[in-house]
Design a protein around this nucleic acid. Structure first.
Length: 776
DNA sequence: AAGAGGACTTAGGACGCACGAT
DNA sequence: ATCGTGCGTCCTAAGTCCTCTT
């Protein structure tokens, strides 16, 4: 299976830079050449960066340095499955203490030049204001009731297809494409590989359930491959259920109604308090929030309650009480805090762990969500609604047949249901009180081997795409002009997903924030600007704004224009398409392929490519900067943003001031130096005393030092400005194959802890023993 | 084919703490 | 010793995509 290195797989993503004004990125369209892809090494699958972009010129950095130590190929814990490098949750002992300290930053120069076939111009961040587009086109019906049906769904087991290379028997995808695509097709020669689904045959084994170990002594890993059997995720599962938030403790602080204190029952007071503590948030400026809150609160107040209007209420007394409580907490001595923390730990300890197939694993979210007011993102229609308290009778527990059923932690109450479904990985769930048709699940933590396994499968699938990408690009390029509108839309949508790393874009209900992805783009979200520029502007996941201008090849441009003709701004751009059709189509091109795989692929291939460029001869600090630069590129591609911190501008100002001061110092030193050279006496200080005259050498040295300091500060400043809206973490956690990073660290003798923090090390334990020559 | 139901991944913000600068 | 920052962790919302039902 070697995907080994083709040096050239480029993602065709159009990069975006974050400075609207300066950014000029471009990338090249896929080569229209219908030439069959045989495989990965053709030009088309390289990271954009290598192909199209000039990378920034000077990277500078000032990271702290650390020892150059190569990654330890730690004694790897027990292997969990046949295919190699998975391992047991690793114990911390294998890891040297991550030293997280200051961040090393990248100084980059914006506006990298790119080839000019396409270019991106501008990108902006998070103007949440943005007006929403018209109503959603389709509304879903409400779903019916609940979960009564236990068990039995058999998830398909995708897991196997990890190997890439060898699968050769194929579906003539290319062929298919050809045939179907009416358009000009030339005999394909795309030799598409097909992965045989080996799934079923393998892993049928049923692990006999091993005795469940109670959670105190765990025998170390018995190596049972997780996910064996048809859809089976585990053989034995033991855990202690979930922990509930404490019951509400009334504080008795009276809020005012028409200026006078009102008595509230504890239940009424609880909601009032939820609202009061949000007085200083900007939810207060949203009528919808108040309206929803009021709707739920008045139900609790009852019809005849004196409070008949939210505007008559003054919650300040409660707000202030809350502030003072917060303050008190802050004032506690560190010992007190520590004691409190320990107490909490003691209480929670038993819930933190599960034993899966004999292995003790961390549970991700064992705390039941406390009641509160719903805080949706963006313009959520349900913001402010009361999220009611969850009781044991709301909760379904999933646990091994042989395991002891967790005792309900609230005396006198009991679980809604207990299941023993080993085809799923959740330990418990309850219905989301805000959207009763939906569920909140309790899963294992990211460090668990169940999660690790599926993470690895995700990256293997993305790597598999590498072998198909050329053919896929050729195919959709050919279909830009297909007479069949649906096919044309599929082609263009796939292109956007590939090039711009857009999300698939499922339909949304009316009672959700109106955001879009590729398939749900509205006409008004894409503005064609002749001859061939497309201006994108829409709110995506989490209401993060996506703004980008891209030069595309003419057929795409024309197709978009044509999709728009005769439609209104709020109409669907891709009216013949939805995610299930799109994914169904993608599956014909590669087994298991879905839209999201392109994001993973483009992110990882970009990292792999950027890291593989000349980085020899750099020191660790420089290498880390290179890494961060690559990380940033990926974050931009994926549109991972963060909001600018409140103190950002103040911080910038302060840096400016400091730089100014240092410049003054230099001036003074230069003056002194000049005088000294001429044999003149030193000037006087502000207090009138004569300054000590430095000898010229000392002055010069000091000047030089100060200049270095200024340069460093200026780089810091630039980096800070540069990254103020870029979130690097998301891609690191979810999109970048950790094996790329680990292998690169090994090759460059960079301590892995310089790149992965403790959580990431635990999450990526499965990737730690990758061969240094690994390439995505 | 569409919709409902279900399970799982991906996401940004809040918060608190440790650490480096002063 | 104090202060401000940057980072990690927690929290839970918001996506994706699958399968089953109609």
């Amino acid at each position: 299976m070697n995907y080994s290195s083709d040096e050239d797989d480029k993602p065709l993503v159009f990069r975006r830079t974050l400075k609207p004004d300066k950014a000029k990125c471009s990338s090249q369209p896929p080569k229209p050449s219908p030439k069959p892809s045989n495989d990965s090494d053709s030009e088309d699958d390289k990271p954009l960066s290598s192909k199209f972009s000039t990378v920034s010129k000077g990277n500078t950095n000032h990271a702290k340095n650390g020892a150059h130590v190569s990654v330890s190929t730690a004694p790897k814990p027990q292997v969990k499955d046949e295919d190699s490098d998975d391992e047991k949750p690793f114990s911390s002992k294998f890891i040297s203490k991550p030293k997280m300290g200051s961040a090393n930053k990248v100084h980059q120069n914006r506006s990298a030049s790119r080839d000019n076939q396409s270019r991106n111009i501008g990108v902006n961040k998070r103007p949440l204001d943005e007006e929403r587009s018209l109503g959603q086109s389709s509304v879903k019906k409400s779903k019916l009731s609940d979960s009564s049906i236990p068990v039995n769904r058999k998830p398909v087991n995708l897991k196997a297809e990890t190997n890439s290379d060898d699968d050769d028997d194929d579906l003539p995808i290319s062929e298919r494409i050809k045939n179907q695509a009416s358009s000009s097709s030339k005999p394909s020669s795309i030799k598409q590989k097909v992965i045989k689904k080996k799934s079923s045959s393998l892993n049928q084994t049923n692990k006999k359930s091993k005795k469940v170990v109670k959670n105190s002594k765990y025998s170390k890993p018995s190596k049972v491959p997780p996910g064996s059997g048809e859809g089976q995720k585990w053989s034995s599962l033991a855990h202690n259920g979930v922990i509930f938030p404490p019951a509400y403790k009334p504080h008795g602080v009276k809020m005012l109604h028409k200026g006078k204190p009102v008595d509230l029952t504890p239940e009424q007071e609880e909601v009032a308090t939820m609202f009061a503590v949000m007085l200083d948030t900007d939810y207060m400026t949203k009528p919808k929030f108040k309206e929803n809150l009021w709707g739920d609160w008045r139900n609790i107040l009852g019809k005849n309650h004196p409070i008949q209007n939210l505007d008559d209420c003054d919650f300040k007394p409660i707000y202030e009480w809350h502030q003072s409580e917060k303050e008190k907490k802050k004032q506690m001595s560190t010992e007190e805090k520590k004691a409190l923390k320990e107490e909490k730990m003691k209480l929670e300890e038993k819930y933190m762990w599960a034993v899966v197939d004999g292995v003790k694993e961390k549970v991700g979210n064992f705390r039941v969500e406390p009641p509160g007011l719903f805080r949706g993102r963006g313009e959520h229609p349900k913001m402010g609604k009361l999220k009611k308290r969850i009781h044991p009778s709301d909760i379904t527990i999933n646990i091994g047949k042989d395991a002891t059923i967790p005792e309900c932690p609230i005396p006198g109450e009991s679980w809604k249901e207990v299941r023993h479904d080993n085809t799923v990985t959740w330990l418990a769930y309850w219905n989301d009180p805000i959207n009763i048709k939906e569920f909140k699940y309790v899963f294992l933590a990211a460090s668990s081997s169940l999660k690790g396994q599926s993470d690895k499968e995700k990256y293997e699938k993305a790597r598999m795409l590498k072998g198909y990408i050329q053919g896929i690009r050729n195919a959709y390029t050919k279909d830009f002009g297909n007479k069949d509108v649906t096919k044309r839309q599929v082609a263009v949508a796939t292109y956007l997903i590939d090039k711009l790393a857009l999300r698939a874009g499922n339909e949304k209900d009316d009672d959700e924030t109106d955001t879009v992805g590729c398939c749900t783009l509205k006409v008004e979200n894409v503005e064609p600007s002749p001859p061939n520029i497309l201006k994108f502007d829409f709110l995506g996941k989490d209401s993060i704004r996506y703004q980008n201008e891209v030069e595309v090849e003419l057929p795409v441009f024309k197709a978009i224009q044509q999709f728009q003709t005769g439609k209104k701004g709020g109409d669907d751009l891709f009216d013949k398409l939805d995610t299930s059709k799109l994914n169904a189509h993608l599956k014909e091109l590669m087994p298991g392929l879905t839209a999201k795989v392109f994001r993973t692929y483009n992110a990882s291939i970009t990292l792999d490519d950027m890291l593989s460029r000349e980085t020899k001869g750099r020191d660790v600090v420089e290498n880390v900067v290179v890494y961060q630069h690559a990380n940033k590129e990926v974050a931009i591609i994926c549109n991972h943003q963060r909001s600018v911190s409140k103190s950002h501008s103040a911080q910038m100002t302060r840096l400016d001031e400091k730089i100014g001061e240092l410049k003054d110092v230099i001036k003074e030193l230069e003056t002194d130096l000049a005088r000294a050279k001429k044999g003149k006496p030193p000037l006087k200080n502000s207090d009138g005393k004569l300054k000590r005259n430095l000898n010229p050498e000392a002055s010069e040295k000091k000047i030089a030092q100060t200049k270095v300091k200024i340069e460093k500060m200026e780089r810091d400043k630039e980096t800070k400005e540069d990254l103020k809206t870029v979130a690097l973490g998301t891609s690191k956690i979810n999109y970048l194959d950790p094996r790329i990073t680990v292998a690169w660290c090994k090759r460059h003798e960079v301590h892995i802890e310089k790149i992965f923090n403790k959580s990431l090390l635990a999450k990526f334990a499965w990737s730690m023993d990758v061969d240094p020559s690994f390439r995505f």
